[in-house]
Amino acid sequence: MTQAQNPFNVVFVLFDNVTQLNFTGPAQFLCRMPGAKVHVAAASLDPVMTDVGFGIMPTVTFEDCPQSDLLCVPGGLGVAPALSDIQLIDFVGQQASDAQWITSVCTGAFILGQAGLLQGRRATTHWGFTSLLPMVGAVHEDARTVFDGNIVTAGGVTSGIDFALTIVAHLHGEDVARSLQLNFEYDPAPPFAGGTPATSPQHIVQAMQSRFYDDRAAEMEKALRG
């Protein structure tokens, strides 16, 4: 009689005002990875509010969470206040100490950094915040997904899906990753070119920075200095 293999524990860390797609994008793909079991961890089992106004139900608390094989920290508007959440930062650090893979999506990289995990590492984050990566000891690499040893960081929001497929290919081979890509019909064909500052009209980049990202980056910088 063969013994059942232990699951490959994928742990997502949630906090208030998380960007749901940073979490749900990679979660949708990683949950179908062979042997994977997804855990959604938060300080309590109360709904965690997203930055679009609906809640996500955690499946485990920080206290009860199993050891992750792959730890993932998404980003969102709640990252700046989360940087001073000692319980959350300690949980990330403790989980990371024995995780095979330590990962982030978007501004979740700064939570990894606050836990001391990006010192001297190549990393990426959302384009509006890349200039702040040196504040957590990281060296910015301009890529959608950056591997540095067992630390994997993904850029803004939708890049979490690319990160998930890349991890699946690394662990189980390209055919498995391609099968999941086909299963979810992930074949991006956006109506406009311009999902990065380099491919967007400069007046749109400047407008986004002045309307939103300058203030958000200043808030993040203040939190990092605090």
Rank of each mutant, 00 (worst) to 15 (best):
A4D: 08
Q5Y: 00
P7W: 07
F8N: 01
V10G: 02
V13Y: 04
V13K: 05
L14V: 13
F15V: 09
L21V: 10
N22K: 00
N22Y: 02
F23D: 04
G25Y: 05
P26T: 02
A27N: 05
Q28C: 05
M33W: 03
P34G: 04
K37I: 00
K37G: 00
A42I: 04
A43K: 15
A43Y: 01
D46R: 12
D46Q: 14
P47E: 08
P47H: 08
V52Y: 12
V52A: 13
G53M: 10
I56A: 11
V60M: 10
T61S: 14
P66Q: 03
S68W: 00
S68Q: 02
D69Q: 03
V73L: 03
P74D: 02
G75F: 01
G76Y: 06
A82P: 06
A82D: 11
S84W: 10
Q87E: 15
I89Q: 12
D90W: 12
F91Q: 09
G93D: 11
S97A: 15
A99T: 09
S104F: 08
V105N: 07
V105S: 09
V105F: 07
A109Y: 06
A109I: 08
A109K: 08
F110I: 06
F110D: 06
I111H: 04
G113E: 05
A115D: 05
G116T: 03
L118S: 07
G120Y: 06
G120H: 04
R121T: 04
R122F: 08
R122E: 12
A123K: 04
H126C: 12
W127M: 09
G128C: 10
F129Y: 14
T130S: 13
L132W: 11
A143G: 04
R144I: 03
R144G: 04
R144T: 07
D148N: 07
G149I: 02
N150Q: 10
N150W: 02
V152C: 07
T153K: 05
G156D: 01
G160P: 03
F163L: 15
F163A: 13
I167D: 06
V168C: 14
A169N: 12
H170Q: 15
L171W: 10
L171G: 11
D175F: 09
V176G: 09
V176I: 15
A177M: 10
A177Q: 06
R178F: 12
Q181V: 10
Y186T: 10
G194R: 08
G195K: 03
T196L: 08
A198H: 10
P201C: 07
P201I: 08
P201H: 13
P201W: 05
P201E: 12
Q202I: 12
Q202S: 13
Q206C: 03
Q206V: 09
A207I: 01
R211Q: 11
A217H: 04
A218Q: 12
E219F: 00
E219I: 07
M220K: 02
E221L: 03
E221N: 09
A223Y: 02
L224W: 04
